[in-house]
Amino acid sequence: MQQETALTQSVSHAPTAEHTADHAGHADHLQVASFTYSVANSKMAMWLFLASEMFLFSVLIIAYIIARYAHPEEHALLNVPLTSINSFILLLSSFSVVWALSGIQSGNQTRLLRGLASVIVLGSIFFLLMMYEYAEMSHHGVTLSHPFGMAFYALTGFHGAHVLIGLVYGVYVFNRAFNGVYTKENHWGVEFWGLYWHFVDVVWIFIFTVVYLI
């Protein structure tokens, strides 16, 4: 961190007239190095954030397990076939992210845009099917005031909120991609958002197993 600050400060000072070409070249090198540190730091920050998110989800999963064994009859109301389709949709959206990323890594803007659009469409379908399942569950009397419903909605709703945030963020990334911001050399924004989206998928893998299959 201190190194990054030092490097950034070095770069931010505008070169004076007496700077030679060697100095300019040195400044360019520092600018690249500064950006490298910046990307490295933001990547580490994202992983630290994702690690902290695990604790939040684990608390909700434990609360759900307690409620699930106390109310087995409500658990039987869960729509496993619909959620299985939703699982495949989310896995496919994760694939679309890496497909888009590998596209821009090889300079293919069209693949980037198509991949990002696919993620937004698939993520939206996932969210809408989740809302449909909620309507179905509440029709069967499993509401927020029910102990099982409270644990179920808290866990899946918290995950759904992450999907929604990922979608809004995805639209922002798509807009930037559409405006040609990302290039073969500079596509860190896509990868950064991709990390978040994949994490949402990883969490869903465990939610699907613990909530719907066990």
Partner: peptide, 9 residues
């Protein structure tokens, strides 16, 4: 840090 980074470096 270089090994953590991707993209524009």
């Amino acid at each position: 840090p270089q090994h953590l980074s991707a993209g524009a470096d």
